[in-house]
């Protein structure tokens, strides 16, 4: 009886081996040698979709980053993908760094019901820290990441409109408020000198003189750009510090 079962098992494994459709070692070779065209052609040669094909496709779209296709394939082979912690970590890192917020939300929402692994916990904390920095407690992070997070949190507490308003009152003050004292000084000196020049030429040559008009136009452009810059300084600094924090966090995980 046991002999019979053994024979049937051998046949079963043989048939299963015949059915193994993806050559994992070949895919690894294509991925490590960065043969993108061959990699894509090989994966696209399978006409019938199945779990492991979606998993390998998700890995392909992670290597040659395409967030929407990565998410599509990931959702179709979630359990397989989630067993590969390296995949989860590098996908989370790239999505946090390069994707739009809508993809980030979809990625982390898809992880909610999954098992609590090290990569999941770590990157969920980073995601929470970047989406709601003011409500997030920095002590939940490792000490090495607290400093970049605090510098990001500091900028998030500032209001871009207030920056623009301050720049309207005193040129450069908005940039000072954002945390760019050198640029603030530069903007103040630049605007001040153009304003003085315009004032002087208007007094000596008259308002309708071409030189006065040129000076006034230059002052107007620099003044308006300084007001806009007061607003942009905070918005841009937020993005930059967020990316720096995520890059630090991803580097620390590796």
């Amino acid at each position: 009886m046991i002999k019979k079962i053994n024979n049937y098992l051998i046949v079963f494994f043989y048939v299963a081996a015949c059915h193994a459709q993806i050559d994992a070692r070949f895919v690894k070779h294509l991925a490590t040698n960065k043969l993108q065209a061959e990699h894509r052609a090989y994966l696209n040669s399978f006409t019938v979709p199945f779990d492991s094909l979606h998993y390998y496709k998700a890995k392909y779209y992670l290597q040659y980053f395409n967030d929407s296709l990565l998410l599509t394939n990931y959702t179709q082979s979630k359990n397989l993908c989630f067993n590969d912690q390296e995949f989860i970590a590098s996908a989370s890192k790239l999505i946090l760094l390069q994707s739009k917020p809508i993809f980030q939300d979809a990625w982390f929402a898809s992880m909610v019901n999954q098992e609590n692994t090290k990569a999941k916990k770590y990157f969920e904390a980073i995601y929470m820290a970047t989406t709601e920095p003011l409500a997030f407690n920095e002590k939940e992070l490792v000490p090495e990441l607290q400093k970049p997070f605090l510098s990001y949190k500091k900028v998030c507490g500032k209001k871009p409109v207030l920056g623009a308003a301050l720049s309207t009152v005193v040129p450069g003050l908005g940039k000072w408020y954002a945390g760019k004292p050198k640029s603030a000084l530069m903007a103040f000196v630049l605007n001040g000198s153009y304003a003085l020049q315009t004032w002087e030429s208007a007094g000596k040559l008259g308002i309708r003189h071409p030189l006065t008009i040129i000076n006034a136009s230059a002052f107007a452009i620099f003044y308006l750009s300084n007001v806009y810059g007061g607003y942009r300084a905070i918005v841009d600094l937020r993005k930059e510090r967020k990316k720096q924090f995520i890059a630090n966090a991803a580097g620390y995980y590796n």
Partner: peptide
């Protein structure tokens, strides 16, 4: 309009000290 304002804003921030006002990644 926005393009010119952005350009002139960068021009007013174009000085050697600006490098210290950006994170290392940039």
């Amino acid at each position: 309009i926005i393009g010119t304002l952005r350009g002139f804003n960068q021009l007013s921030e174009c000085h050697p000290g600006a490098i210290y006002e950006h994170p290392q990644l940039f």
